[in-house]
Write a protein that binds this DNA or RNA. Structure first.
Lengths: 215, 215
DNA sequence: AGCATTTCTTGCGCGATCCGCAAAGATTCT
DNA sequence: AGAATCTTTGCGGATCGCGCAAGAAATGCT
């Protein structure tokens, strides 16, 4: 699972295109038919490449499906580094996370009717066959976030627990928020949920007062 | 992955025995040879059952290997419920976690002292093929912990972010601590690491002061 | 104890996955 | 243009995960 933005020759561009085409095809088919009724063959056909080529890009169906979410999660670290150093860590984190998750919520570029996307993600989270790939992606993204946090705070990702705890906590927040957001009826703005979750984390997760926090 | 302690007939006992035998065999072989050099066939042979039976207990090698760790992680929720309600949440959590992780650290019962063992375990858990299984197990354990936290704090695991954030944060702490503990040279007492990690979490993960926290 | 029922084990076999290898095709470099 | 480099693709092999059905073991009922 590498995404290296080298200088954009025809070659690199095509690679990214097929990568995205494959991932997108995998998601679309999984949403339509259910994950178990999609073979690698179908995904490859949908993307216009051979089945063998699919495995040159992804080592499993799960990886392909999770790829886009992963690509986005990964950018959080980038976004954090782009934040002014004067910003307090947790404020910068909240801004970085919100920037990536609060707007182009679903497609990440194209606009597809939201309903389908919501169903797809819910499927993704609930299917045991995908939790693995999903978690692997999250772990990779967290590693980068941890490095960024280490740089910003002057800690060492190899020796200190701190940066990894922060990255892990942010990952947990995103995971919990996504799940809650997908099941919320009526819908709750995701920005609100994110702000709430990160606020609780940076406050040390104190036991909340009695009243229901879900108006 | 179900562990239901039903009434202990001969049948149930044997089932648990083969389950543990299979999981243990999987771990031992994976530590010795490396995960890729262990086939399901070998594990089954080691445990004295047919390869087909292996799949009646675990749907993958990874699941078998993670099973014991999972069983233990799962008991944290139990342990938490057993703590007096007067104890503050984070104190109770620290005690519950420590109770399960600070003693029979790796083996889970027997005492296998070796250095080679730790090396093997390190290699094993760093294997990408296992991250999935680990995550799945962690998710299951966290769900139970979230329920226990919800009960204790009067929150709702379905509606409030809080209990899930707490459970997730504890899961992250355990994960980070385990990784750090395995790579620590010289060794650091795991209880110290756990206390440190949970302390930072319940303090809101403030940016630590300059000095190195690793003496 | 005797017999029916439920549960677990096992062998067989199919569909699918993942990956190494080497030939063919496409892109880039000089 | 020609060489070098990378990508795609088909083929084949090693597993793997699991459904199915027969046999064995344990349990429940009388």
């Amino acid at each position: 699972m590498d995404i290296e933005s080298e200088r954009p020759g025809l070659r690199e561009r095509k690679k990214q295109e097929t990568r995205i085409a494959l991932s997108w095809a995998a998601i679309r088919l999984a949403v339509e038919r259910g994950l178990d009724n999609v073979r690698v063959e179908d995904i490859a056909a949908e993307a216009g490449v051979s089945p063998r080529t699919f495995n040159n890009y992804f080592s499993s169906k799960g990886e392909a499906i999770v790829a886009r979410h992963f690509d986005r999660a990964r950018q959080i670290a980038e976004e954090l580094r782009a934040r002014p150093a004067s910003e307090p860590l947790w404020e910068a984190l909240a801004n970085a996370v919100t920037a990536r998750f609060a707007l182009g919520q679903d497609t990440g570029g194209e606009s597809t009717p939201d309903r389908q996307w919501v169903d797809g993600v819910r499927l993704m989270i609930n299917d045991p066959a995908l939790t693995g790939a999903f978690a692997a992606a999250a772990a990779a993204a967290e590693a980068e976030l941890a490095a960024a946090v280490a740089d910003r705070t002057g800690t060492d990702a190899a020796l200190d627990l701190y940066p990894r705890l922060v990255a892990g906590a942010v990952g947990v927040a995103i995971r919990v928020v996504m799940e809650r957001w997908l099941n919320a009826e009526p819908p709750i703005p995701i920005a609100r949920l994110l702000h709430d979750a990160l606020g609780q984390l940076s406050a040390g997760l104190p036991v909340p007062p009695k009243g229901p926090s879900h108006p």
